[in-house]
Design a protein around this nucleic acid. Structure first.
Lengths: 197, 197
DNA sequence: AGCCTAACTGACTGATCAGTTAGTTTTTAC
DNA sequence: GTAAAAACTAACTGATCAGTCAGTTAGGCT
């Protein structure tokens, strides 16, 4: 792996665990075995480094979801919905640093004045919401899911699942212990009242 | 108001909007018209100031909820549940700085090594979850809410509502536009399948 | 008045930080 | 082989920061 990639990977971890301001370029340099000037050779400023990190996280998330939903086939919309929740939780455990980063306030604050940052965040959240929405639309077509606004319900479901991930990342509550209830709740949220579920 | 209270109030706003590290004692001093040494006279360190802020936020939240639920009477558990969601959203708008602070990562990180911080956060989240749980238990008793684990469902509902508030605070999605859908979703989550809702 | 204490302050300090400069080493291309 | 370009670095800088110190001021009590 190139030194630039090393730096990006270490920076992702540091920004995720310590935040933007609490990550020092000296610390990052020491961690990667590079001189701090090397970091400024590859990334012109700390903020640009952060933007690169966020962009690579965006690429990672979009890749992961497109791979999962490219291979996996679902019997109906409700099953796709459950698959989405499961995969979101799996990813939040497997790539914890991505979600830690997204659960910090700094990216959203930066997004207010920086277009690149805003676009990365929009891509990420659109990816999340779109998949929930697709499952809901499919489920309404095949009858496994009841009548409701797909976009808004997708947002509410993302809110629920992401909230649980945040609770876990903040050490407030254990996500694993809530898994069964979460799936059951999502089913109830999507319930088609015309059939037994 | 005493200067100490002035400092605490301004610090709450600054910590909420800029975070811990990005709030400078000099800025806080200038904002309150005090010398920076005055802040250190009242609070022995920046961290202790933050703990005082968090503790006062905790007191504020506990007060607000105890007043609301002390006065208000509900016909049944389901109505209490809706009242809880509405009041949570109202408070998130009216006391935005409290929720901005709670949606930052710093408090949770500090909580891992500081008992006072951990206890404040526990008090706040127990208050939230307890009220949702109480509504669910009452609703199960009066038949307005179906059979489900009250504690876990309370957590999931808090996760949904708080997630929406976070989306709003991060400028991702508008909470107001989702209000009707949110209430409808909460009703579906709590649904008693034995009766029309 | 005199005294005590709590509230407050201006001026300072040492540490840390992001970023620069001027230069060296390594890789690439011919 | 060599020249140019890319990768890298040690040493430095100016700014900012939390926190200190040596005092001054204001108000209550006898």
């Amino acid at each position: 792996m190139s030194k630039k990639e090393d730096i990006l990977k270490a920076a992702t971890l540091l920004f995720a665990t310590n935040g933007f301001k609490d990550t020092s370029m000296a610390e990052l340099a020491h961690m990667t075995g590079a001189a701090s000037a090397t970091i400024f050779y590859h990334f012109k400023s700390k903020e640009e480094l952060f933007l690169s990190v966020l962009s690579s996280v965006k690429d990672g998330i979009l890749d992961e979801f497109s791979h999962y939903f490219g291979e996996k086939k679902f019997a109906n919309g409700l099953e796709m919905l459950e698959g989405t929740v499961s995969f979101y939780l799996y990813l939040a455990g497997n790539k914890a640093e991505w979600f830690l980063l997204l659960h910090r306030y700094y990216p959203y604050k930066l997004a207010k004045e920086n277009n690149a940052c805003r676009h990365s965040l929009e891509d990420i959240y659109n990816c999340f919401v779109d998949i929930f929405e697709k499952a809901l639309v499919q489920g309404q077509a095949d009858g496994s899911i009841g009548k409701l606004s797909p976009r808004k319900t997708a947002l509410l479901m993302l809110s629920t699942v992401d909230g649980i991930v945040r609770f876990k990342n903040c050490d407030l509550y254990d996500a694993g212990a809530l898994y069964n209830e979460l799936i059951a709740t999502i089913r109830r949220m999507a319930a088609n009242r015309n059939q037994k579920i």
